[in-house]
């Protein structure tokens, strides 16, 4: 017995979700930031940048984590007041829950006081990163 209805439903729902997912990938969103946490050197294990820090959470089953790491670590080389800190999400589950990190890579943009001002899930674009960093004083 042939039936096309389940196939049509699955493809329609998956496409809708796929377009929504693709659109939010890499976008740096300030409304998703979780304020009220201070990410200090004691929490992160590394000194913060004097103006801004990008804290990237990665996991083993994540292809874009590698590309994100390459982009961000390379971008901060000429910046003397911005740092990139890389954290393995799985070995920092308490922090992951506190900060409500749901997927990897997730990159938090924090200011000099360790307060989160925005976050990006997925690999952000170079221009998006530059714009987000420029907005942090």
């Amino acid at each position: 017995m042939k039936t096309y209805l389940p196939l049509v439903i699955v493809l329609a729902l998956a496409s809708a979700y796929g377009f929504w997912w693709k659109r939010k990938q890499g976008a740096i969103r300030s409304n998703k930031a979780i304020p009220g946490h201070r990410l200090t050197e004691a929490v992160l294990g590394e000194a913060l940048g004097s103006r801004a820090t990008m804290v990237q959470f990665s996991s083993a089953f994540c292809t874009p984590c590698r590309a994100t790491h390459a982009l961000l670590s390379q971008m901060v080389i000429p910046m003397n007041d911005v740092k990139h800190i890389h954290i393995d999400a799985e070995s920092h589950l308490e922090l992951v829950r506190e900060l409500d990190i749901r997927s990897t890579p997730t990159t938090l943009f924090i200011n000099k006081d360790g307060i989160e001002v925005g976050r990006a899930a997925g690999t952000p674009k170079r221009e998006q990163v530059l714009a987000a960093l420029a907005a942090i004083h």
Binding site: G18, F19, F57, S59, A60, F61, T63, V96, S103, P105
Partner: peptide
């Protein structure tokens, strides 16, 4: 969409 299932699911499961 080049969707990464491990990126979205693994950390949530963990």
């Amino acid at each position: 969409f080049n969707y990464c299932l491990g990126c979205e699911m693994y950390l949530l499961i963990t």
